[in-house]
Simulated scan of single mutants.
Amino acid sequence: MADTNLPEGTDSIVTDVVATPIADSTEITSRQNGVREALKGGTDKLRSSASDRAMGFVTQGIERSSGALSNVSALIGDTASSIDERLGSQYGDYARSAASAIERAAGNLANKEPDELVDDARSMIRKSPGIALAGAAILGFALVRVVKSGLGSAGDSDRKRKN
């Protein structure tokens, strides 16, 4: 069945091939819109989920921070009498004043919603960006020191286990 009119490299003509019509532009556009809507819906779900998780972490952080401040306040208040004996009553009063200020800050922190804290931080940064930048630098430095000391102690314990 070799046909001599076929291009070089072609052995035979394929029969029983059904031609499919090319989709029109409205069908293609509707498919694209469907895909676009599906992607948009998935993105909205992910964004909502991430936002909910972030708010949960912020709320948990607020609770922990408030508790830590309360503990620091109690510690300072407990040592005020010792400060009275060692350094004088004036310094003990300073310690009690600092303890009450820290306790008020802990109460304020515990009573705020995460959105309020974000708004307060934004307004503080707008009012005094220099102080915010300095605070961020100090926190960054402190965080690096904590991480380095943690890594150093972990490395020391690994060395002790190997020896």
Rank of each mutant, 00 (worst) to 15 (best):
I138F: 15
V147A: 11
A80H: 08
T4S: 02
R126C: 10
S25Q: 12
I28S: 01
F141V: 15
E37M: 03
D84L: 08
D24W: 03
S12W: 00
D11I: 02
S49V: 02
T29R: 14
I83Y: 09
G42C: 09
D3C: 00
K45Q: 12
S48H: 07
S149N: 13
S51A: 08
V35A: 09
A38H: 06
S51E: 04
P7F: 00
F141L: 10
D115G: 10
G135D: 07
R86H: 09
G150S: 15
D24H: 04
G88H: 04
E85D: 12
P7V: 03
A110I: 09
S66A: 07
G67R: 06
A50S: 06
S66Y: 00
G107P: 01
S25R: 09
L133T: 14
I131M: 13
A98F: 11
T29H: 15
R53T: 11
A132P: 07
G107R: 02
N108D: 13
S89K: 12
N163G: 14
R122M: 06
K40S: 14
L117S: 04
Q90T: 12
M124T: 07
G41K: 14
A110F: 08
G34V: 10
L139M: 15
K40F: 11
K162H: 07
L46K: 11
V72D: 04
S51L: 07
S48L: 09
D52C: 07
S73H: 00
D52H: 08
S51Q: 06
I76S: 05
S100M: 08
G92F: 04
N111T: 03
R159M: 10
G107L: 06
D52Q: 09
